[in-house]
Design a binder for these strands. Sequence first.
DNA 1: CCCGGTATCTTAACGACGTCAAGATTATTT
DNA 2: AAATAATCTTGACGTCGTTAAGATACCGGG
Lengths: 232, 232
Amino acid sequence: MTEAMSRVTREHYHHGALRQAMIAAAEAVLAERGLGGFTLRECARRAGVSPAAPAHHFGNLTGLLTTIATLGFDDLSDAMEAAVASAQAQGRSRLAAIARAYVETALGNPGRFRVVFGQREMDRQDAAFRAAATRSFGILVREVRLSRGLQPSRLPDEKPAAQAPAPDLPEVLLAWSAVHGFSTLLIDGALDFLTAEEGRQAFLDKHAARLFALLASALSAGQGLAKEAARD
Amino acid sequence: MTEAMSRVTREHYHHGALRQAMIAAAEAVLAERGLGGFTLRECARRAGVSPAAPAHHFGNLTGLLTTIATLGFDDLSDAMEAAVASAQAQGRSRLAAIARAYVETALGNPGRFRVVFGQREMDRQDAAFRAAATRSFGILVREVRLSRGLQPSRLPDEKPAAQAPAPDLPEVLLAWSAVHGFSTLLIDGALDFLTAEEGRQAFLDKHAARLFALLASALSAGQGLAKEAARD
DNA sequence: CCCGGTATCTTAACGACGTCAAGATTATTT
DNA sequence: AAATAATCTTGACGTCGTTAAGATACCGGG
């Protein structure tokens, strides 16, 4: 049924590094076409492989997206850590630097950012993904506590997600929500009617810093100010 | 080729109210299956019509989604206005009520909420959609200004989007970003590792009010008008 | 060395999707 | 009443994710 295979096909019958090639192709597709134009077949095409080949490495589309989401979360963590280090060295606000890094990561590759936050079906229970998510959240918790003048954590490397953030949870939630919401509103075009005139980058340069400063002041403002309204 | 049409088909050849039926079907599909399970063919199936029929009323899938997004934005505005009125009558915080209404709208039908914010290709330039979006934004601007003890607007019904919010823009952006980010993090499951233990609703009852109170205090902090924040 | 088992990849096909062209049917206008 | 427009169906096209069956390459134990 297949005696006449093309020479090039036979020579490359085994790709050899398909998993890495698929990941690279997926990131390229997300960067070029966004999540809407993302397709398993297109990724396979770019990797020079049949549409069924990726199944051996990722199971199905969900598996590939879970992998991409994990890598994206790691990059988000790296970007935040780098921003913190750079801000520390320059004596600027660590929290504002984190916020800017978060927004820039989202704007830099909206498709990838959307994959990270599950706009397309993926496995959020995946162990590697959960680890990556926990790391990001830990960075946020640490920085929020630091910005409030508290100890970051007893031990620097204990699991920061499940245990510590109880007392500062509202502050952490506000910080994450604000930064994440601002990012998603931007990449979804919900703020276009505000940014269209001056351009998105100019808008960011003009207003983002004030927004982040307002957020930072909110986090350090009231130690117990929020409590009496808990009933509402 | 078509002499033998089924009797029921011939009698209902013209649906009569397909546009409304498609909208109803679309909302039902979004509520049941979410945005991931949303399909033009499935909506047509529920409306009792062939897959090609909706094209005459919506052009294509993008047109249908734009319509749904417009209705969803209107519902969001209605929910916010109702929450404000109710909070006013009971002497509670208007801003917290808006925030809660926003989150509840998102959690009540995540698929629809995602359509509103363009997770699937739609026409954001559509006039009706822009009007609905502007209305929502206007409500938010008004309430943020009110919460800061300022006049809501010179004239109550002039276009509030393009002109007014310049001075309070950072506060408005923080409010919208925080509430929107909190909503999307919740419906995307990014907070599941926090909500899994006690359940999502219990988590909301416990922490959402504190989060919103923190936000409200942040908005009034800048000008030093702590009147409302002190009460709520 | 080679030989069998296993991992990897291709081919071919399936059903579902959005969309379009062509035709049938009903509503509206003239 | 005839012509025109609006509405809906049929059938088809190309693309998608996935699967089963078969082909090919790698690899460790005789």
